Simulated assay, not measured.
Amino acid sequence: MTSNPSPLPVRMARPAQPRFTWHHFTMRFSSTPRSARLARHLAGERLDTWGVPYGSDAHDVLTLIVAELSANAVSHGLVRGRDFRLRLSAEGTTVRVEVTDTRGERLPALTEPSVPDQEGGRGLLLVAALADDWGWSPRTDGPGKTVWASLDVRPL
């Protein structure tokens, strides 16, 4: 008797708890809203490749953090003609997101929008609420700053 193999590919189950040895991804983007969206998209693909699957809470949180920090780099860290840099790194069960821009005089701060119904102004508040830790530091290889956030991706 012969069996008819299924025409659908078999997808291997991913481990329930990602355990990274060490992964690193860095890319520069032009300072435009379109590039901020591209940064979020590429970060999502990279995270999935590293074992943080699409649709998981950790994946959603990390891509939202990338989106907020990239949008901030484009809108608040913009220096005409200069790029921003996205860096993702994973070690153990922690993923760190870093976004570097070239505008060092506008430092990140957790503040409520000045007008209650104003759109925007809540990005860092959102990052601080979602990440396990966040902060910023002066850029070491030129003018500007790096804003970072880290998240432990172990399931609860």
Results as ranks from 00 to 15, higher is better:
Leu78Gly: 06
Arg11Asn: 09
Phe25Ile: 00
Thr32Cys: 15
Val74Phe: 13
Leu125Gln: 12
Leu86Val: 01
Thr140Gly: 08
Ala149Gly: 09
Glu119Gln: 09
Gln118Thr: 05
Val97Cys: 08
Glu45Pro: 00
Arg82Gln: 06
Asp101His: 01
Asp48Gly: 15
Glu45Phe: 03
Val147Ile: 11
Thr93Pro: 12
Val66Leu: 14
Leu47Ala: 01
Leu69Ile: 13
Arg103Asp: 15
Arg96Ile: 02
Pro113Ile: 09
Arg37Ser: 07
His76Asp: 04
Ala71Arg: 02
Val115Thr: 07
Leu47Trp: 03
Arg37Met: 05
Ala90Met: 01
Leu156Phe: 10
Glu105Met: 08
Arg37Pro: 00
Glu105Phe: 11
Asp48Glu: 13
Thr26Asp: 08
Gly81Ser: 08
Phe20Val: 12
Pro18Asn: 08
Leu86Thr: 00
Ala13Trp: 00
Arg80Ile: 06
His41Thr: 15
Ala39Asn: 06
Ser35Lys: 04
Phe20Asp: 07
Leu42Lys: 10
Val66Lys: 10
Val99Ala: 01
Asn4Arg: 06
Ala109Gln: 07
Arg34Ser: 11
Pro113Leu: 13
Val99His: 01
Pro15Glu: 09
Thr146Ser: 08
Met12His: 00
Thr21Gly: 11
Arg46His: 03
Val10Pro: 06
Leu38Ser: 03
Val66Trp: 13
Leu125Ile: 09
Asp60Arg: 03
Ser3Gly: 13
Phe25Gln: 02
Leu78Tyr: 10
Arg11Tyr: 13
Leu8Trp: 08
Leu126Tyr: 05
Ser70His: 01
Tyr54Ile: 14
Asp117Leu: 00
Glu119Asn: 15
Glu119Trp: 08
Thr94Asn: 01
Thr102Ser: 10
Ala128Met: 12
Ala67Met: 11
Val95Trp: 15
Asp133Ser: 10
Thr63Lys: 12
Val95Ser: 11
Phe29Leu: 02
Asp117Tyr: 04
Ala71Lys: 00
Ala39Arg: 05
Gly135Asn: 06
Leu107Asp: 03
Gly121His: 14
Met1Thr: 10
Arg40Ala: 14
Pro113Glu: 15
Arg37Glu: 13
Trp22Val: 00
Arg154Asp: 14
Val147Ser: 04
Arg11Gln: 10
Pro5Phe: 10
Asp101Gln: 01
Pro33Leu: 08
Glu119Tyr: 04
Val153Ala: 08
Arg80Asn: 03
Arg19Ser: 02
Pro108Gly: 10
Thr63Glu: 03
Thr21Lys: 10
Ser114Tyr: 07
Pro15Ala: 14
Trp134Ser: 06
His59Cys: 05
Glu112Leu: 07
Arg37Gly: 06
Ala90Cys: 03
Thr94Arg: 12
Arg139Trp: 03
Met1Pro: 12
Leu130Asn: 13
Asp117Asn: 00
Thr93Ala: 07
Arg96Ala: 08
Val97Trp: 04
Ser150Lys: 04
Arg139Lys: 04
Glu91Arg: 06
His23Ala: 11
Ala128Arg: 03
Trp148Ala: 04
Trp50Glu: 08
Pro138Glu: 08
Glu119Thr: 04
Arg80Ala: 13
Arg139Met: 14
Trp148Phe: 12
Gln17Val: 07
Pro108Asn: 10
Ala109His: 11
Thr102Gln: 13
Met12Ile: 02
Glu98Cys: 00
